[in-house]
Design a protein around this nucleic acid. Structure first.
Lengths: 346, 346
DNA sequence: TAGCCCCTAGACAACGTTGTCAAATGCCGG
DNA sequence: CCGGCATTTGACAACGTTGTCTAGGGGCTA
């Protein structure tokens, strides 16, 4: 009773195929396919024989071949800045949940804020023929995606709009959130308010700055050039920017931090400062209420962003031929203490 | 000058193939393949014509077909508990970096601590023919992976060992870290120390408990049954467990928290408590030093775990036929204040 | 019992790429 | 001017799956 090596036992590095299963079960190739895919038209007895062969050989369908044949991959890609950033974890998770509920797998990659790497990743995902893409853009020119979108790759941008192409985008209300935050500080009596934000080429940074200026203007307050500092969110840069604003002859009495990394550094700086300074941060973070004083923030709902974007994506994949849309997710001001500190004039 | 629809312009949902490129460039199929893959043996003039056709058609190689033909997918899978957990973000990112440096893509999924979902995800990844897997196991029986491993899917477990199969695993020194944490509390005078940990079926929870017991025993201290509470890390459960230990007739004077979620809840509970209680947590978290008192922790290096695991994976993929190994990454006690509070006896 | 239909099952082509091999071309030396 | 060699190029099969189409067998009706 000798048998060929293939089709009877597992040889390291060689995987059984439907052909092997068919040979072992004594049926045709297509019958195995039917059983594997739960298609009708197979008698219980045949099905049992096939199932046994599958189990015995440890067969697993090769999805590459399936994808090649069917054209759909049941997978979507997510390109974001940095998975290690606490803002993106929940977003990614939310996208994954939606994908899962549609039977799709999520492939993701980090662009590290590098436009070239973003493009490289996106195109690698397209080469894998993902059905759709959720992109948190690092670059500001996405024309390289035109052939992909034309070829039917559903694409949704999140957190920042696409550059130079017309595509779906899901954003937080950065402008409104920032305006509310600064208005909140003004309502508590502040007149000299500093803003430390991210690099101005980033859309969210620009919008938040616009919100800051709008709130100040609405209250009839002037904005001194030294109160605004945009740039890297590296702790050193933020630290010196904050120090400068606080050491001026007429120092700011409140700070509005442009994102969670800035907020955290600002907390450290203010802790060491001799006079209480109010602080409102954009982005919530897990322990904001444990710090003393607890940090008042403008919270954006990362999971909501992700869910919305993925939802939009699958609506496209399910055939809705809607034109590109721009959705805005509202933000929420959460007063916790640090934003309600009264101005202390020197 | 009419041309066929395919091969001249983009029709929605139809992607050009090498055949189309070849037709447009007036060359053979294989020549296109050579150009796309940068293989030698193509004259500059031919190459230019092919490149032009590629650009004109917006051609992108179909990696599904390539994978089917070549057998290798240049992608690895990562299955973890929850991407939204701050511990896993950096781990995932580290794995991705290593994958990237080897030219591989990372596909990941969250198991949500559900063994069935873990298996489902892992097998889906195997069906995609990932070259390797990094798994943070939720279940405790991984025999379902045997055919895959036999078929050559390199597999490395992280954070917790595999169940019932022999496979590579990269762990933190949970036992040693916990022992050190508790010894630290004992050194500061504590004799009644509570331990609140994760569900006992989880390997890390067991190891940390073992470390706790070992440190207590080494100091000749008894352990009252009411001082140990294992179970869900949901805030409610942790809150009531802590409350019970603190309300006893002889209350604990220090708490050792079994992971970051427990620590955070413990901080909230202790903040509301009338008497200072020392606290050491397993897992560092970003703002541990901003809380007052700053939280003393046993830090595990998630990125280091990820890098090590991925490194091991690629060593296997690059052909090293080493037997399964078990690597332990040391932990580090970081005293910040909360763990140095002296016992206050009631 | 013939005729029909339904149900199960398998043969075959196709998906888009790459490896193999052979043909065609051009160049060299004799 | 011819044989031989190197270089460029293309025809063809194969990867493992699924869609289509057809064959065969069994049961039903007339």
């Amino acid at each position: 009773m000798t048998e060929t090596a293939r089709g009877t036992s597992l040889r390291y590095g060689t995987r059984p195929t439907m052909k092997d299963v068919a040979a072992r079960a004594g049926v045709g190739l297509k019958t195995v396919s039917r059983v594997v895919n739960g298609e009708p038209g197979v008698t219980p007895d045949t099905e049992r024989r096939v199932q046994e062969a599958i189990a015995a050989l440890g067969f697993r369908r090769n999805d590459s071949a399936r994808i090649l044949r069917k054209g759909r991959t049941a997978s979507i890609g997510l390109v974001l800045e940095d998975l290690a950033d606490p803002f993106y974890g929940p977003l990614s998770r939310a996208v994954e949940e939606v994908a899962r509920s549609h039977g799709a797998l999520l492939i993701n990659g980090s662009s590290a804020e590098d436009p070239a790497r973003e493009q490289e990743l996106v195109l690698a995902l397209c080469a894998r023929r993902v059905d759709g893409l959720v992109v948190i853009p690092a670059g500001d020119d996405h024309r390289y995606l035109e052939p992909e979108i034309a070829a039917g790759v559903a694409t949704v941008f999140v957190d920042r709009p696409a550059g130079r192409i017309d595509a779906d985008v899901v954003l937080s209300d950065n402008f409104g959130g920032a305006r509310d935050a600064v208005a909140h500080l003004i309502a508590h009596g502040h007149r000299r308010i500093g803003f430390i934000g991210d690099q101005p080429r980033i859309h969210t940074a620009k919008e938040r700055l616009r919100g800051y200026r709008t709130a100040m203007a609405a209250a009839g307050l002037p904005v001194d050039g030294s109160w605004v500092s945009l740039g890297s969110t590296a702790p050193d840069r933020v630290r010196s920017a904050a120090a400068e604003m606080l050491a001026a002859r007429e120092p700011v009495t409140a700070l509005f931090a442009g994102n969670n990394r800035v907020t955290v550094t600002a907390v450290r700086v203010l802790r060491a400062h001799h006079r209480p300074v109010a602080l409102v941060g954009f982005d919530d973070f897990e322990l904001a209420d444990l710090v003393h004083p607890a940090i008042t923030v403008v919270a954006q709902d990362a999971a909501h962003l992700g869910r919305t974007a993925a939802g939009l994506l699958f609506r496209h994949l399910d055939g809705a031929g809607e034109p590109p849309r721009r959705l805005e997710i509202p933000t929420r001001l959460i007063p916790r203490g640090s934003g309600e500190i009264a101005p202390t004039d020197g």
